[in-house]
């Protein structure tokens, strides 16, 4: 599939800011499931800083802006060709040891309920891949998709207790459950092309990857009850949503920040 991406992030400030720094993880991962045809990232009026690829294989680029600033606009435009690898992150070069993804974070801490959910889900199941599928299924069942009930700082445990949440909550819960049963797991941020009708849809998305011995990292999207396929574009990963955030920024000054994000994905006419 060939996907066109347009992703514009605008931070507005109610008072002018002295300066801003952005650390961007907004570049499609390099692996067999996706190929960049064209891609551009720009912070309007900013100065490009260093860029590098980190140990998890993600490209990170930093930008800085001098004040006075009323807003910071980050524009991503590009076209990516994707193929369906049934969630397997084949051909992805990275150095980070899978064991480093067994560490708990605040958002992915496994409380008693998550531990029970995980242990029940894998009972009688052998094989990492089968376990991961079972965990993803259990999480999808336990947390119904419902926008607006959770927020950016909701933890896996809180979402499970609520029984409702969005893709971030599903991913956190799956990560917490997988780590609890000894499977390395991580948070992935990216885009999902959800509209088969050819109309652009809101498309920023997140899912989880579980490390399966012999196979490597495999993506699971409990929110949609599937493994990532050619409708997905992978950007980067981390221990949790905060760690995997595509945009990290900080502006100096006294102004209050408000955020406006527009993401549109469309299947290109072939």
């Amino acid at each position: 599939m060939i996907l066109d991406v347009s992703h514009v992030t605008v931070y507005r400030y109610d008072a002018s800011m002295r300066s801003a720094v952005q650390s961007l993880r907004l570049f499609p991962s390099r692996f067999d499931g996706q190929r960049v045809i064209r891609w551009s990232v720009e912070v309007v009026g900013g100065m490009r800083g260093g860029s590098f690829r980190d140990g998890a294989g993600d490209k990170i680029e930093s930008w800085s802006l001098r004040g006075p600033l009323q807003e910071v606009v980050i524009r991503v435009e590009g076209q990516v060709e994707t193929v369906d690898l049934a969630g397997v992150l084949r051909g992805h070069r990275e150095l980070a040891p899978p064991e480093a993804y067994l560490r708990e974070t605040l958002a992915t801490d496994a409380d008693a309920a998550i531990r029970t959910l995980a242990e029940d889900a894998i009972e009688g199941i052998s094989g990492d891949l089968e376990k991961a599928h079972a965990l993803a299924g259990a999480v999808a069942e336990a947390i119904a998709y419902r926008p607006g009930v959770t927020h950016a700082h909701t933890t896996a445990a809180e979402a499970l207790k609520l029984g409702e949440g969005v893709c971030q909550d599903h991913a956190h819960a799956l990560i917490a459950a997988a780590r609890h049963v000894g499977l390395p797991a991580r948070y992935v941020s990216g885009y999902l092309f959800a509209g088969a009708d050819g109309e652009p849809h809101e498309a920023a998305h997140a899912w989880a990857e579980v490390f399966v011995a012999g196979l490597g990292w495999v993506g699971f999207d409990p929110a949609n009850g599937c493994c990532p396929d050619d409708r997905y574009i992978r950007l980067g990963s981390g221990l949790d949503a905060r760690d995997a955030a595509p945009i990290r920024g900080l502006a100096r000054g006294e102004g209050e920040e408000s955020l406006d994000v527009t993401v549109a994905l469309a299947a290109a006419q072939q």
Binding site: V21, S23, G49, G50, S51, F52, D54, I60, E61, S62, S64, R242, R248, G249, L250, R252
Partner: peptide, 24 residues
Amino acid sequence: DPLCFRPDSMLGVPGLMDVYRSGG
């Protein structure tokens, strides 16, 4: 660096880790 580590840190330098990791 609040962008890389504790986001509430006022002691560090935002963006320092990116400069470090890109060899600056």
